[in-house]
Amino acid sequence: MQANLRVRRYDPEEAEPSARMQEYHIEVPEHFTVLDALIQVREEEDPSLALRCSCRASICGSCAMRVNGQAHLACKTRLSAVAPEGEPVTIEPMGNQRVVKDLVVDLGVFWNKIRAIEPYLQPAGPEPEEEYIASDESMQNLITPMGCIMCGACVSDCTALEVDENFLGPAALAKAYRFVADPRDGASHERLQTLNEYGGVWDCTRCYMCVEVCPVGVAPMDRIMELRDSVMNEVGVTTPGARHVESFARSVARSGWLDETMLAVDSWGRFNIPKLLSQAPLGLRVLVRGKLPLPWPFHHKRAGAEFVGRIFKRWESKKQ
């Protein structure tokens, strides 16, 4: 089949470096992956093309890049899947990271975030003479986050990181989960306290991009949500994010739907007058345009709210 690749090139050593798209049209076998095609380009057409790759088997994590606008492992992406009719395939470096040359990015930011979560086991007491006793279930539970190959795809496409570089990001938070959920780790509480701070678990916008692009099924956002639960249970409800979750549940349990005004009041705090005032114009505008249900005390119960309430009660008793 024919592969029509449009590759984003960037050479910092040019007199006036600037990114440009370069097209390659090559004949390749049906089973070829995007990586196979790029390697063929590098070997036969253009040895100046820079990319990272090594294992060709989605275990080393070297070859994450954007294919048609979304982060992929090039070695795990078949050409026939992204361009069944030989359509042009656009290949670019990962996002949210500085481009070094062509498809090679500087992963320094990525690793700094990993370092920030203290990514090593911190046992509680002295090590036992033999192994730690731990249930197979608890270890199996860690296989998914441990399966992370640190390719950077989730960081590339994280929409929260795009606007806030302080966010720890999906990979580091999934790694943090791996320690918090490890029964051998003695620092879970301290870890959760840190994760409860600015840049931690509450800065995720739940956009699902990381889950979608992760090539090995780590589903970082799911791990972040599990961490949020742990933070609320272990550290308490101390942040706007956690109060937001509580208010959400309280409102739905009470009236069967969301009282968005109370959501804002609960999240920011009843006495956080400056913040609430700053939000007031926005609130009024959406209210006027009919996009906001009437606030308390006019917020009415939906039909069937009792049923919803009962579901909450049953779940609460189950939890206890």
């Binding site: 090590e127 192994e131 197979d136 270890m139 860690l142 051998r184």
Partner: peptide, 20 residues
């Protein structure tokens, strides 16, 4: 093996919670 386990390797366990 014990050193690796102490470092944090999540080895498979048997029913008693020991390394399988």
């Amino acid at each position: 093996i014990i050193n690796l386990e102490h470092m944090g390797v999540i080895f498979n366990r048997d029913e008693e919670g020991r390394l399988g």
